[in-house]
């Protein structure tokens, strides 16, 4: 017992003389250091007391932080200096013990596991198999409720928006956009009427409406009627990571994504010109009804926003 202990804590049983240089402070002139430390402690003490005072009178936030931070820093520096300059300089040594045990000890552990456990399992293979199977199945089925209860299945929600045939375009206040509302070079974020303040309207259906100078501008073949009176509408969701593409440069005719600077050519079906976005912004076909209000001819012809596996291979 005692032999073993000596191995584990092999410190000298001998004392050390009080004037041993290992016990001397590291500082050349301990008195001066002590005085300096005393000053830092006094400063620290005053500042932490000041923190209390500042809190008491509800002073500005920076005074709270300055007093607390300054006080703690001074106290800490004083304490470090105390340890560094006034405490025994050492150096002291300690043996490292090999953590590894002897070969026999390891064999004994391995034998215990393999022989006892292995023997039990080998003799009752069927039982072990059944138990293992049961736990394995539980491990798998336990995942079902854990995962499945977290949220609904995507189903078709990622593919559709709330833009339908004849949906009115409204701004954030719910006001319908009229043909005369936007001057050339204007941009406004629009939503399907009634959804302007809903999560889905904001996050999925958000669309930018731009007015350019040309009447009935065709951004791409097959979209001849989509931009009446120079009104062009594109999904505001970046096809890269879904940030709102709200940055419109009217002379360059670019929509720029503020997140990663993908640039979409407004006059060419919002085809990406630069940056990481892989697909054009889907365009919303518009028409102007008899009263002069802007409405959608139909929904988007493709899923809006960033890419995902089931999205399909079509680029537009």
């Amino acid at each position: 017992m005692s032999d073993h202990d000596e191995l584990r804590t092999p410190v000298s049983l001998q004392g050390i003389a009080a004037d041993d240089p290992h016990l001397a402070p590291a500082a050349h002139n301990p008195q001066i250091v002590e005085r300096v430390i005393a000053v830092t402690f006094v400063l620290g003490l005053l500042l932490v007391a000041g923190f209390g005072a500042c809190y008491w009178v509800n002073a500005k936030p920076w005074t709270l932080g300055a007093t607390m931070g300054g006080g703690l820093t001074f106290l800490g520096i004083g304490l470090i200096a105390w340890g560094k300059y006034l405490m025994p300089r050492g150096p002291f040594v300690e043996e490292r013990h090999e953590l590894a045990n002897s070969e026999d000890d390891r064999n004994a552990l391995a034998a215990a596991i393999v022989e006892r456990g292995g023997g039990v399992v080998k003799r009752r293979k069927m039982l072990a198999g059944l138990l293992g199977g049961g736990l394995g199945i539980f491990g798998v089925v336990a995942m079902f409720p854990l995962l499945r209860s977290l949220g609904p299945l995507p189903k078709g929600t990622l593919f559709s928006t709330d833009w339908k045939k004849g949906t009115y375009l409204v701004d954030i206040t719910g006001r319908r956009v009229h043909q005369g509302d936007l001057a050339i070079g204007s941009i406004v974020t629009v939503y399907p009427a009634g959804l302007e303040n809903t999560d889905r309207g904001q996050a999925v259906d958000q669309t930018v409406l731009i007015r350019i100078s040309n009447e009935n501008f065709t951004t791409q073949k097959g979209r001849e009627t989509w931009g009446p009176a120079g009104y062009l509408a594109y999904s505001k969701l970046c096809t890269h990571l879904g940030c709102p593409v709200g940055l419109y440069e009217q002379e360059l005719q670019l929509l720029v994504c503020p997140c990663h600077q993908s640039m979409f050519d407004v006059t060419n079906g919002a085809v990406p010109q630069f940056g990481p976005a892989p697909r054009p912004l889907p365009q919303l076909p518009l028409y102007i009804d008899a009263d002069g209000y802007l409405r959608s001819q139909d929904g988007y012809d493709q899923p809006v926003g960033p890419g995902f596996w089931e999205r399909g291979a079509s680029l537009s």
Binding site: A183, G185, S186, Y248
Partner: peptide, 12 residues
């Protein structure tokens, strides 16, 4: 007025 590349905000 929407100077240079800045879009113009009028009716909106």
């Amino acid at each position: 007025t929407g100077p240079a590349n800045m879009p113009r905000f009028t009716g909106n």
